[in-house]
Nucleic acid binder design. Structure first.
Lengths: 124, 124
DNA sequence: CTTGACCCTCACATTAGTGTCAGGGTTTAC
DNA sequence: GTAAACCCTGACACTAATGTGAGGGTCAAG
């Protein structure tokens, strides 16, 4: 199928499909006229790519595991677990930072509300 | 003082000080030779900017409140509270997304570990 | 044989703060 | 008067996936 049909079937933009190819995630054949030619299996490939992107993996990380996971169960691909574990650490770090900022923000908000309830003043 | 001294006193790079000026957060005078001339008060200004950046505010958001908060208590500046509250909402949304991803990741990790403990296979 | 829908590549824009380099003045101390 | 240290502007790089547009082939239906 052509790129337009793959885009329609997967809901992924043509631009993104070309980008995935540039990053080595998809390698369609080319027709004589230069058009990309995708097999029906490409639909599953694209869905897998989207799934991993939604997990926060980068295209580079995905490229390292995509071939294996498309042909096996995840547990069978030795590269998947360390990537997941590293991503989990990053996520935890981000949550930690955000939680800290959140505490600071709520403290300041409460402080402002308290002061205003005491004096009732405000200005630009 | 010159920009180098301000950078040294605040621990903020010269590059960043110029950027803050470009974004309207600092407006030093200029000497006849074109050098930026900062008052001692600029040290407090830069520290305030850093504080708000660390709270996740953008330079645009900071520019809207900086003048007031440098001269008053936060509670006295009417623009501060809505910015804090909006930022809090964004943070909560981010934490929510990350938490969801985290749950998905740990589920997959556990699943992999479970499958491996049952079959003991792996491969690249 | 022309129109419209499809495809191609190349490349800039987006976010946001900071690093870094080029190319070039100024000042200070020797 | 020159070297070192300081300052200036302008501009590209970085991250990462995607949008968008220019400029230009291809194909299918009429």
């Amino acid at each position: 199928m052509n790129i337009g049909e793959l885009a329609e079937r997967t809901g992924v933009s043509i631009r993104s499909l070309r980008y995935y190819e540039q990053k080595g995630l998809l390698t369609p054949l080319r027709k004589e006229n230069g058009y990309r030619e995708y097999t029906p299996f490409a639909v599953e490939q694209v869905q897998a790519i989207q799934l991993y992107l939604n997990l926060g993996l980068s295209t580079d990380e995905i490229s390292g595991i995509l071939q294996c996971v498309l042909q096996n169960k995840e547990a069978f691909c030795k590269d998947v677990l360390p990537i997941y574990q590293q991503k989990l650490q990053e996520i935890d770090k981000q949550i930690q930072v955000l939680t800290s900022i959140r505490a600071n923000l709520t403290e300041r908000i409460d402080s402002i509300l308290l002061e205003r309830s005491l004096s009732g003043q405000e200005e630009g």
